[in-house]
């Protein structure tokens, strides 16, 4: 430690403080904060906060991609998903009859936004939302999201995560085309045989 003049270090520090103070008016990277409710930073595309259920088409009850396989319920680390299978079946995007959830609840206060339900879902039915202003005055029903509140259209998914949604749609369309071609081939073979 070699301080020739006592107080020199403090003065040097004050010069830095002054530099930062003046700089905060002219340089963007010296002032990174925004005035939150009025001003908002744009959402990152990868942002995630709370899961939602994707549906295709207009009617959310018919178009829900979820087939109530309960994998997400099992894999969810804090166990915040609750699913009851319906006995009635409905056709999926390939026209195959699938199960559907009668009850699908997620507890907002338990969910820790880890995205594991999204990763393990084999049907691309559950995705992450970016909505973060979820506070509510009612701490019981208000925090429990039911199936009707969770269901959101595919267009919404395209809006919040464009790249991921395009990739998912491409994959689903390819599968559908493959299934249709297979069905056509089977029908043609049947016709030829008949």
């Amino acid at each position: 430690m070699s301080a020739p003049l006592l107080g020199q270090g403090i003065i040097k520090g004050l010069v830095e403080t002054a530099r930062n103070f003046v700089g905060s008016y002219v340089e963007k990277d010296r002032l990174t904060t925004v005035q939150y409710p009025e001003e908002r930073v744009p959402q990152k595309e990868a942002a995630r906060n709370f899961p939602f259920l994707v549906y295709d088409g207009e009617d959310w009850e018919k178009g829900l991609r979820c087939v109530a396989c309960c994998i997400c319920e099992k894999e969810c680390p804090p166990q915040c998903i609750y699913i009851v299978k319906d006995t009635a079946r409905k056709p999926d995007y390939l026209g195959k009859l699938q199960f559907q959830p009668k009850v699908f609840d997620i507890d907002t206060s338990v969910c820790m936004s880890c995205q594991i339900c999204v990763e393990v879902c084999p049907f691309d039915a559950i995705k992450m939302d970016v909505e973060y202003e979820l506070s509510t005055g009612n701490r019981f029903d208000g925090l429990l999201q039911r199936k009707a509140q969770l269901a959101k259209p595919n267009q919404y998914f395209h809006k919040i995560h464009p790249a991921e949604a395009a990739e998912v749609d491409g994959r689903l369309d390819a599968e559908k085309a493959k299934a249709e071609a297979k069905a056509k081939a089977a029908a043609a073979a049947k016709a030829a045989a008949g």
């Binding site: 020199q8 270090g9 403090i10 040097k12 520090g13 530099r19």
Partner: peptide
Amino acid sequence: DGFPRFLDELEALLSENEILLSRTQ
């Protein structure tokens, strides 16, 4: 690339500050 500037400023602000020296050494 921008981080060394912060480190230089942090060191100028703190590393030779007499109060910090007498409180920590």
